[in-house]
Amino acid sequence: MKEFLNINNLSVSVDEKNIINNLNLKINQGEIHAIMGPNGSGKSTLSNVLAGKDGYSITNGNISFCEENLLEFSPDERANKGIFLAFQYPVEIPGVTNINFIKTALESKREFNGLDPLKPGDFLKLIKEKAKVLGIPEDRLKRQLNVGFSGGEKKRNEALQLMMLNPSLAILDETDSGLDVDAFKIVADAVNSTRSKENSMLIITHYQRLLERICPDFVHVFVNGSIIESGGPSLADEIEKNGYERFNNG
């Protein structure tokens, strides 16, 4: 099985405060990993570091992606190589329409990978198809990117981008938060539909309910910037039942 992501002894600090400590994690092609952990344990820091956000100091260790040093690449290069971060709090971009943005992102990725842009008609057909799956009305595609969207609409829009860009490694940072019950099912099922032997996922969540619909191969418990226990889906069941007390107590 091809190794996709290899995080080796990674330590990360922000303003000289250690957030991630000697983290080790391997994700192979086709695997789905879930990270669960209490608030402030460093989960979102990990997703930001993987996506290449500024402001984090790598004080130790390395990350490879498809056998290349990920830390050498800019955020856009990482995205074009196949890493996708579904944001916990997607930002609003006034003046940029949703559909134009997704078209530009898709063209950028295709250009990076030596492919011609999709024909306008094909792109339109594809995005309408995906939007329909997610219950996104067509008029929302023409609205400004995330501007005035509710929390749930923003998360659906992240899922739409995920489906359109079809990344090798999708990092879902609390994609389930802010969704009502019906929207949760739609988004979870849509994300699950992108699952394949070629693609991997890293799901960051607080809740076991998402993992019921997107069954992970591995569940990791993340506390104080480290994985302190790993297991199968049953580990998520235990956390749902008993919380993080056992892990916090070491």
């Binding site: 996506a51 290449g52 956000k53 500024d54 800019s74 955020p75 856009d76 990482r78 995205a79 074009n80 996708f84 971060l85 944001f87 997607p90 930002v91 971009i93 940029v96 943005f101 530009t104 992102a105 950028s108 990725k109 990076f112 981008q161 860009l165």
Partner: peptide
């Protein structure tokens, strides 16, 4: 960063904004 994370270069992201 949001635009970068979707594959748009810094220059392209600034232009779009």
């Amino acid at each position: 960063f949001y635009l970068n994370s979707r594959g748009l270069s810094k220059l392209k992201a600034e232009k779009i904004l």
